[in-house]
Design a protein around this nucleic acid. Structure first.
Ligand code: ZN
Ligand code: ZN
Ligand code: ZN
Ligand code: ZN
Lengths: 129, 129
DNA sequence: TGCAAAACGCAACAATGTTGCATTAAATGA
DNA sequence: TCATTTAATGCAACATTGTTGCGTTTTGCA
């Protein structure tokens, strides 16, 4: 494996993800770091950050892919992904509900790798309207 | 609301989905009904079938969208979508695990619309290898 | 400072999905 | 059976999202 470098683009992308309280899509991230780097670079930086376990990938209920930094996950350990995600249909934001762990029991013939558990609905902020 | 029609394209698409034991993507469906209709028509037929509750939409762990016909769901009732889906990382097939119901408890501040629960891993067929 | 290679920009391509509009065909009733 | 209505289709064109190749730049380190 190659030694990762701390580039301007990487810092910018990671900063936007870190300072957002919900998961961002690639277009959203590119919009926010506008000028800092190329569109393709954002894709490559995101892939690298995922591999380095700095961020994690969330698939939204509509198939769009978002990126977030789990608050309870430090760089030290891998993401278990055994927690729920809440996807608001109004503001499109995705939250990690890390206190909500799900336990699934399947026949031994199934080998489980990861759980992708997302609830769609209206989040507290949007419900207050 | 308009009155749906039973067209050749619709029959072909529905037949492919019905006769498959795993969920199919739009490209896979288009491949299988080849010649029967245009690529765009497949998209429109799928949208209509989802609205008519004949099939349901499953988002794969990688964000790709697949379509399936729930065996336990007849046209009479709406899809609860409270069951698990298993997504094989080897053969890419998606199965409905309709006997596996999940019950989620969230604060009242969240209004739940749908559950999207997918497990990725290796399916029984691929594990036997 | 000089070097190796990690990372980047750019262009080109690929896959997937959408829209507008003229034409076709399915359902219904005369 | 035939005419009418309009749902549905085909086609072209466009939009979005993601990928690849390659020459150039920048980073980390000696
Ligand atoms: Zn919201
Ligand atoms: Zn999470
Ligand atoms: Zn499999
Ligand atoms: Zn299902």
């Amino acid at each position: 494996m190659s030694i990762p470098r701390n580039t301007k683009a990487k810092q910018a992308v990671l900063h936007e993800i870190s300072s957002s309280d919900f998961a961002l899509s690639q277009p959203e991230i590119f919009e926010r770091v506008k000028g800092a780097c190329d569109r393709v670079t954002v894709y490559r930086v995101l892939d690298r950050l995922v591999m380095e376990n700095k961020i994690h990938k969330i698939v939204n209920v509509d198939g769009t892919i978002n990126y977030a930094r789990c608050t309870s996950c430090d760089e030290s350990h891998t993401h278990a992904h055994d927690h729920l995600h809440f996807s608001c249909i109004t503001c499109k934001k995705i939250e990690c509900l890390e206190e909500q762990l799900i336990h699934v029991k399947l026949p031994d013939t199934y080998q489980i790798k990861e759980l992708f558990l997302t609830i769609s609905g209206t989040c507290p902020s949007c419900q207050a309207t």
